[in-house]
Design a protein around this nucleic acid. Structure first.
Lengths: 346, 346
DNA sequence: ACCTCGAATGTAAGCGCTTACAATATTGCA
DNA sequence: TGCAATATTGTAAGCGCTTACATTCGAGGT
């Protein structure tokens, strides 16, 4: 493989270089960097100056190797391609920063095999703990993590009975509440567009929520027209086209997330359907997109930032050795906006 | 600091453990992992089985330390909070993956000090090369990178004369082309909303592009009403409100990016102004948002994925030792959509 | 059967850092 | 001033891995 990039024979200064220049031992330099108060002011100044002059920065690998600790946590998210995870992750990172911990992010493109690979990569890189999205996962992955003693926290979902502690919300209940609002408007021909449900407990639970609400309202859950598709505005639009071809046409389309919902909305408008006059549409997540389309999307608001912050706090504790958390359930809220209205007066 | 997370005395298997179990030396195990064809089939099978049974995975830090090479490149982007960088970065990562290189991403929240810190962190982590956004940066950072011999590629901008090679587009020219279209519609009372220009050559050059187009068209560049604000839909809206309070009211508002433009669009509509009937609005970037609002945004399309892919290719070469690149300039395209029209017939 | 030579494997020296422990300097107090 | 106690610094042993070099093995040629 490639020879390393010391293109012009540059030499990276090491601890020893700094020590020599400052006229102290490497141990002292190390202490200056990691526990400055153990070093007397005078020496410290000298060392710091040497650090400056040499442009020294510690070699992370060596440090991790020697200290058996990296002050790094890893997160594997399904995709960076949209805002759903961005906001929560940002908050997560900010909170970690307070404890001097660095975040490493990897994305799995919604593929379980890639996710497993990324998890291994992060662990190999020394992640002290991991943040993962959703509970669904090959048990082998959990065994691996268990064997390595790497604390794991699940988020974007909450399930008190799952193998690993989670900080998030109950996807089923949240969606059920939204669906109940839809039904309360008088809709009884319902359809739904969901992201792929295999390996995705969040998507699955959301759809279960829809059925639950239908059942409670006395509607036959089996009458729900369900289209499963991959995550994108375009696919949402395509799915919508399929649903609108059904007769009698569904009067409300409940989407598993805002991105699909926006696609559905666009398609409806393109077909000349009035939203919500001819058909109601709802989303889930309440990302920026939801408030930017016309009419604005009725959706479930998720406290992304709060979730990220809480996750960080708990993970820091877990790294500190506080064993096993019960998990935290966060509340979501249905936000009623323009895309939901009563069904057409047939 | 925290004791490390071996909560229950788990022991992570090392190369030596694998070697012992397979009855070979550590060198052979290492070779099995890094250069399998140097090991005879029989031994290899035995080793691989031991790896399996033990659930061994190599310690990245140790490997980097010994091999002086990490097969990792780092990228520091201004924010993860929106889609602008996501798509290009995704492509970047995919292309790197082809060469077996891992991407580490950090975000700087548009703050130069944080960016410098993240750059140091990535270098300390052994990044073989770095991808950075835009040219503006404290010279000290470049000196540091130079001293470390870390190849750097700039993207999301192109400037043949800049200190570091870049792969991107000419922000000024691209915006100038868009502004020319606006002017061609008959607008002569122009306003603009820009992201903060300090430390952001991209934002600055875009505004220079507006002025350039005005100048070419015989308009006084000084007559441009400019509002500078931070990056978000809401701030775009606020800025729009300020601009719409000016008399005589500008008839076209050129925004430095799509996010600000969407905010401006929302505000205009909230104020009861017709877009483009009463006021035209344009964006820049052509992110998903641009096609999702009503009417769709006239904007500059940037070939994000192409840019990411190219950047990856060149960076891989640079790591391989191919010195200094001339850089690559990519073409952008003005996409005329619904938010641009002729000015109101006064 | 013996020798040569290349392929396969083993040996052991670090890579740059942290940290237990030892050595030394400094301080307070009698 | 002298001594114990404490604060500061130094010494050196690894952390887990790669790799140059040494060693051993096996096949082919005579």
């Amino acid at each position: 493989m490639t020879r390393h990039p010391d293109q012009s024979g540059k030499t990276v200064p090491t601890l020893a270089d700094v020590a020599q220049r400052a006229g102290v031992s490497t141990a002292t330099v190390s202490r200056c960097l990691n526990a400055p108060d153990q070093v007397v002011e005078n020496t410290r100044k000298r060392v710091m100056q040497a650090v400056q002059e040499l442009g020294y920065s510690p070699n992370f690998g060596a440090r991790a190797l020697a200290a058996k600790r990296t002050n790094t946590v890893g997160a594997v998210i399904p995709t960076m391609d949209n805002a759903i995870f961005a906001r929560g992750l940002q908050a997560f990172q900010e909170e970690l920063g307070r404890s001097g911990i660095t975040l490493l992010v990897a994305s799995s493109a919604y593929r379980p095999d890639l996710e497993a690979e990324q998890i291994r990569a992060l662990v190999a890189r020394g992640a002290d703990a991991l943040l993962l999205i959703g509970h669904d996962r090959d048990p082998g992955v959990y065994r691996f993590l268990e064997a390595r003693g790497v604390p794991v926290l699940i988020t974007w979902a909450f399930d008190a009975n799952a193998e690993k502690p989670s900080i998030g919300f109950d996807n089923r209940r949240a969606m059920s509440a939204l669906a109940a609002e839809v039904i309360a408007q008088g809709h009884n021909r319902l359809a739904a567009i969901t992201a792929e449900q295999a390996c995705n407990d969040r998507a699955r639970e959301r759809m279960n929520g829809v059925r639950e609400a239908m059942h409670k309202a006395g509607l036959r859950a089996e009458s729900l027209h369900l289209v499963e598709t991959t995550y994108s505005v375009e696919h949402g639009a395509k799915a919508m086209a399929r649903l609108m071809a059904i007769t009698p046409r569904p009067t409300a389309v409940i989407c598993g997330n805002d991105v699909l919902a926006v696609g559905a909305l666009q398609e409806a408008q393109k077909m000349g359907l009035k939203v919500p006059g001819d058909v109601s549409i709802t989303g889930f997540d309440d990302i920026e997109l939801a408030r930017v389309v016309t009419p604005q999307l009725t959706t479930v608001h998720v406290p992304h930032r709060h979730m990220g912050r809480e996750a960080a706090r708990h993970l820091v504790q877990m790294i500190g050795g506080t064993p096993f958390t019960q998990g935290v359930e966060l509340k979501t809220e249905v936000h009623l906006r323009g895309t939901l209205g009563p069904p057409p007066a047939r």
